[in-house]
Amino acid sequence: MLELRLVQGGLLKKVLESLKDLVNDANFDCSASGFSLQAMDSSHVALVALLLRSEGFEHYRCDRNLSLGMNLNNMAKMLKCAANDDIVTIKADDASDSVTFMFESPNQDKIADFEMKLMDIDSEHLGIPEAEFQAIVRMPSAEFARICKDLSTIGDTVVISVTKEGVKFSTRGDIGTANIVCRQNPSIDKPEEATIIEMEEPVSLTFALRYMNSFTKATPLANQVTISLSADLPVVVEYRVAEMGYIRFYLAPKIEE
């Protein structure tokens, strides 16, 4: 028996909106510690890891570990039927081939339940070791989204370079080139507008903008995004999900031919 009640149901709507274009089908893993997901995009270039810790739910009952295979587009369709301020409850029986999403309005005058068929998904689970990064950039998520969107009108790839001077996003295409430099800005008055750069060593990596743009669908979840870089390793783009967890996108770099 699984029963997860999330008062901030809008968070789950935003999580699905940020996943559904990158991943078609995925297993949600439910255990005593939380509700999580790990999935790759269909071309195995990017990976997403989601964790919503059990403490973040108003009620969290998970009698035994369960894996719920869901089509994320269909799940997003169902969650779109919830209002942003609805309380969302996810329910499933151990042997059931379906999951129920219950939506309650904050004043309890409307209660809806949507039942969705589960799928058997044969997915590969990857072990991601804890890594020390050469550079970690924390910046406003809206600013990062704007940069990715702007650069993708010029080129297909972005070179992210971190130096003492700041973080530089560069692209080149048929019509020309573009460079955007963001300098460190502690923004003490408005911490959500801060850009903080922790650099052990300068680093420069190239990534496909198509995937970066897809990751920025998570922008409504968090004011800040963290971009962690190390030479010859995938970049990690992380958005915090309120106080309860995170959504992390991993993207393999491009290398010169």
């Binding site: 195995h44 689970h125 990857l126 393999a252 770099p253 491009k254 031919e257």
Partner: peptide, 14 residues
Amino acid sequence: TGIQLNITEFYRST
């Protein structure tokens, strides 16, 4: 431009 690496080249199956 460039060769796109796969994520599975970096992380092992568990």
